[in-house]
Design a protein around this nucleic acid. Structure first.
Length: 208
DNA sequence: TACCGA
DNA sequence: CTCGGT
């Protein structure tokens, strides 16, 4: 494994688990199995490690998303799989990490949030159109508007808001909103499929 | 690994 | 003392 790759995997793992402030350059060097000298050969400072680590994480996530979408046999299955995918992703991220990223590395935080924006609206609209064509979603829905709504709400819950509280985590709020969205667009035929896939892909955690 | 400076 | 940086 190349040193750069080692650094990025190690730092993304450490940052997501322990946050950005508590992890030191010594920690990253040690976990990467390289010297600090080599570390500074690839990065000028810690901020650069944070930024590159976020970019690397973003690319990995996008690739994983595309793989998930490709593996779905129909639009409803794709939607349920994506919900399960983001649920497991956010469960692996320490909430403090997002907080520290926003406070100490605002540029990287904005870049992380924009990950959800770029082509995801387009992918979402594609899913909605396909779902209407196959009779799973109501044909009256405005696909252009609702694809944007779906992405905007995903971003909303990452910012301070009235929904994510002590007894409602990001993942539980994301799940509830995702379900609310689905029931707003599906036909009876779609709901039948949705219920089957949900039981299959999403582990139910007890509600608080 | 040792060390400096904030 | 800790931690980014040399």
């Amino acid at each position: 494994m190349e040193p750069l790759e080692k650094i990025l995997t190690a730092s993304a793992e450490l940052f997501s688990q322990y946050g950005f402030k508590t992890i030191t350059m010594d920690d990253i060097a040690r976990r990467s199995g390289i010297s600090k000298k080599t570390l500074y050969l690839h990065f000028a400072n810690k901020e650069e490690v944070v930024n590159e680590s976020i970019t690397w994480y973003k690319n990995n996530t996008t690739n994983a998303c595309v793989a998930v979408l490709d593996s779905a046999g129909n639009p409803v299955e794709a939607m349920v799989k994506m919900l399960a995918f983001f649920d497991s992703m956010f469960k692996r991220i320490n909430p403090m990490a997002l907080f520290e990223l926003e406070r100490y590395y605002p540029a990287a935080y904005k870049s992380f949030r924009s990950m959800l924006l770029e082509k995801d609206v387009a992918l979402m609209e594609e899913n909605l159109k396909e779902g209407i064509k196959k009779g799973y979603y109501r044909e009256e829905i405005d696909t252009n508007l609702l694809s944007k709504l779906r992405i905007e709400t995903s971003i909303m819950i990452l910012q301070p808001n009235r929904m994510v509280t002590d007894d409602h985590t990001i993942t539980s709020v994301a799940m509830e909103i995702g379900e609310h969205f689905m029931y707003g667009i599906m036909t009876a035929k779609g709901i039948k499929l949705y219920t089957e896939y949900k039981a299959q892909y999403i582990k139910q955690t007890p509600k608080i």
